[in-house]
Design a protein around this nucleic acid. Structure first.
Lengths: 141, 141
DNA sequence: AAAGTTACTTGCAAAAAACAAGTAAATATC
DNA sequence: GATATTTACTTGTTTTTTGCAAGTAACTTT
């Protein structure tokens, strides 16, 4: 099924967080409280880049910072992620509000189009706010 | 996303093979040439049962043989699998004939309904013949 | 110029997976 | 009805992957 890239606990979560939580940087993932170790994170991001699902470019403002972003191939995973979300909401007690998911299931196409739109426009607002957006940068403001 | 069950290389493939290749027994998986070790296979089948995605019942004809089957929760993964298949066909060179996948993408609902139908009716014919059905039982026929 | 921040890497312990072999129970064969 | 075979595993052992703690180079902020 050519999904070997996702044969681990983290890769899919990384894609999800890029797609619907608005994550962009290494720091976002590291401090999201999911408990991924930094070596594993670096490794998974590398793999995803190698697989053509994610790309990285240095930030223009801060040259230390890398911005990670889904490629076209990556954003094409949106339908997969959406179906997973729907399945999870139906069969596992998740934090996701049931009626929101039901609504999403009904408007599949619209939700996917909105996901793509945010990706195209680099709109960083998380699609699913209850998952939480990227963690606040402590040094910023 | 409550998909921790699939945080490994094999569980999803097992579900796929139950869903669209018509696999039923331990032997089917063991000899499908995907190279899964038997201890891992036993462990993953156990996990999937525990997660309520798969159930097992002894065969009536041959009491040694266990038949594995998707539960309702398991067959509800059909949309996820279908989207994965579509994604894989678009972005990775797979063995899947492109136009068949294109057709599937167009008739999403029909394909899912047919998958469910085969599951309900215990129709063992593989949905995607090019993946290969269950391996021939050597002692049979 | 000193003190953070960011995105990593390195080394080591622990956990998980792969490999090889063995086993009990049921069935088929002679 | 004794022997061989099949099925679904389990039990060691080796190899690989992961998790954790610590460190570092490049850059930015103060």
């Amino acid at each position: 099924m050519s999904l070997e890239v996702f044969g681990d606990r983290w890769s899919l979560l990384i894609v999800r967080d890029l797609m619907i939580r608005g994550f962009r940087t290494f720091h976002d993932f590291e401090n999201a409280g999911e408990g991924i170790a930094t070596n594993i994170l670096a490794d998974r991001l590398r793999n995803l880049c190698r697989a053509g699902i994610v790309e990285r470019e240095p930030d223009e403002k801060d040259r230390r910072r890398m911005n990670y972003r889904l490629t076209e191939k990556g954003i094409d995973l949106a339908p997969v992620l959406l179906e997973m979300l729907i399945w999870g909401a139906r069969h596992e007690p998740t934090g996701a509000p049931g009626e929101v998911i039901a609504e999403m299931a009904k408007n599949r196409e619209a939700v996917i189009e909105e996901t793509r739109r945010r990706w195209r426009d680099r709109d960083p607002r998380p699609l699913l706010p209850w998952l939480g957006g990227p963690p606040a940068k402590p040094g910023k403001r």
